[in-house]
């Protein structure tokens, strides 16, 4: 049962009348080489993939596969050495207005000198959104993440999971078209993590936002995503891009118990094991170790 029929999750054509672009986020041949005194280090070799509007895709790869590097390139925090990132057809050269990022380090991504409400409000205030509209957006965002009761607290007075909720609320209130999440739940405890995963699904459905969720957790990627993009080990290319054909309504207990979930999980796991061993897809045309 979907309360709000407007969003267009994975693959379904958007309702007529709204002209949504074919591709929301396009990563084209992105390569990133770090220049150090010890020599150049190629973190990302050649990454190409597209996200359709309203898609929820998980990016998963072995540790050290340059996931964070890629995310920084996509969010415009870092310029790729070669290739380009297109958002809604426009080339990303700095942090775009239509994008919000949720970082893993919740303790370091919120302003400790501002209360919860001020943290969520700041990006809007900075955009010059009128006070009345701002208040509504902030209220709705805090409501959505279940934090309506603590607007006057400081972030550091909250638990890790709640701090990450504040960061998510800040991203929601900003009304982005693309939401990037960099291993957002890697530093919270397992129980909180399950709650937050469900929260992301709910928010995504409600807002119809395009989500790129980076994780190193295979279960999480399969449970959350409509699609999982598996990265090879560094220098990184796309190892495999698979569709997660699980039911739309997901549930921590039942979904994870489905045979199909187990199959997909196995598949992703195997691919990552291959990636770790240095196996690379033939398409990448690069040397295999």
């Amino acid at each position: 049962m979907q309360p709000d029929p407007t969003p267009a999750p994975a693959g379904k054509t958007p309702p007529s009348g709204k002209t949504l672009p074919e591709v929301m986020l396009s990563v084209r041949g992105v390569k990133k080489v770090y220049q150090t005194d010890g020599g150049d280090i190629e973190a990302v070799r050649n990454l190409t993939f597209d996200l359709r509007p309203g898609e929820l895709a998980c990016l998963v790869g072995p540790s050290g596969s340059g996931k964070t590097t890629l995310l920084k390139c996509i969010s415009g925090l870092m310029a790729p050495t070669a290739g380009e990132v297109l958002l809604d057809g426009k080339r990303v050269s700095g942090p775009p207005k239509k994008m919000a990022v949720v970082f893993q380090e919740y303790g370091r991504s919120l302003f400790p000198w501002m209360r919860v409400r001020e943290n969520v409000e700041l990006p809007l205030k900075n955009q010059g959104v009128p006070k009345a509209e701002r208040d509504t957006l902030v209220d709705e965002a805090l409501e959505a993440v279940g934090l309506s009761h603590v607007p006057r607290s400081y972030p550091w007075q909250l638990s890790g999971g709640m701090q990450q909720r504040v960061a998510i609320a800040r991203a929601i209130a900003y009304q982005p078209e693309v939401l990037l999440m960099d291993e957002p739940f890697a530093a919270v405890d397992a129980q909180t993590r399950a709650d937050l995963e469900d929260l992301i699904r709910v928010v995504w459905k409600k807002l119809g936002v395009t989500v790129l969720f980076v994780t190193h957790d295979i279960d999480e990627s399969v449970y959350l995503g409509e699609r999982v993009i598996i990265l090879s080990s560094s220098p990184t290319v796309v190892q495999e891009d698979i569709v997660i054909d699980l039911p739309d309504e997901r549930d921590q207990l039942n979904t994870r118990a489905l045979p199909r979930f187990t199959e997909l999980r196995h598949h992703v796991y195997e691919q990552i094991q291959l990636a770790k061993k240095g196996h690379r897809p033939a398409a990448a045309g690069s040397t295999t170790a």
Partner: peptide
Amino acid sequence: MSSDDPASGGPAPSAGRDRRPVR
């Protein structure tokens, strides 16, 4: 924590670690 990702903190891979400060 999964900060074992060497690229996460920016350009800090191990290869040039010991020579960089000197240079």
